[in-house]
Design a protein around this nucleic acid. Sequence first.
DNA 1: CCTGGTTAGTTACATGTGCAACTAATGTCA
DNA 2: TGACATTAGTTGCACATGTAACTAACCAGG
Lengths: 162, 162
Amino acid sequence: MSTKQKPADRALHLEQFLPYRLNVVGFFASRALGRVYGTRFGIGIPEWRVIAQLGEFGQLTSRDIGELSQMHKTKVSRAVTELDKRGLVTRSENRADRREAFVALTPAGQRIYAQIVPLALAFEERWVEGIAAEELRTFERVLAVLTERGRHLAGAYHAEEA
Amino acid sequence: MSTKQKPADRALHLEQFLPYRLNVVGFFASRALGRVYGTRFGIGIPEWRVIAQLGEFGQLTSRDIGELSQMHKTKVSRAVTELDKRGLVTRSENRADRREAFVALTPAGQRIYAQIVPLALAFEERWVEGIAAEELRTFERVLAVLTERGRHLAGAYHAEEA
DNA sequence: CCTGGTTAGTTACATGTGCAACTAATGTCA
DNA sequence: TGACATTAGTTGCACATGTAACTAACCAGG
């Protein structure tokens, strides 16, 4: 069968293996950024994601937050509870559907959001500094493709269909 | 200088925020690949990383494994213990330095490694299928830069210096 | 209505993980 | 040689997190 190589014949080098590399860079990203708001504001990644979504969209149900920020509903639940305890968010019942509640930032929460945003953007800026804009665009385009495929390959949380 | 925007003025969109995106794609990668060897071989990500490194390098100390695969030493310790219990690796004392031990795959471990490698490569293949080779190269080059910077920004595990 | 199915959100439980402290061995420097 | 620092690896502990089970509310079809 001509020059076509059988997969089994190729070797695996973990440090070049894409899933591994993506996992490592994602880990570094979390950890590095986590320090920024962890040490200064005492909040963790799940809490940060909730704040970020509320800062952007104003008012959301826990379900929406989970969907938008790719977090398990229990993680969202706990993060919202924690933020509520600290007075950074409020929960208000939806009269039209009393199963769900709208979560929103309090003034204190908005202040924290306003403080974190520039730090986060500066962090990102520093991280990609010096990379050519064209290369970065390509990078992000491929990243989007990989993320979308990954979502399906992973079967985001549940959704065992197909 | 004229058009330059101050960071504080820009808005943050989590779904376009690079650290977040990298974390999400890394999460999908782990989860998807984890299914491959998790459901068929009953091993987790740390165990897989240990096996992968041993399959590639033959014999390593736990310290080396941790360094090569970016895992905390306690995670390595537990993964090796688990693999030892299952008869997939052996530990042999280093006479020249009795603090450390060489870990290596047993024949059973090698068989599992030989089974997983083609699955992992096929998974990677399917994941990047259809992406232009040139774009993929650019992607990987940028990824390498981001990983290296991330390592420093995160301060891999300890190394609180500077 | 009311019965069965679905959905938003919480909680009990088990597991995974990092940090700190520890043991045991090696290295260093006087 | 001996005292102190360092390193490989393990373990106690606290905490984070996913799964499954649960509650409460909504929805569909009779």
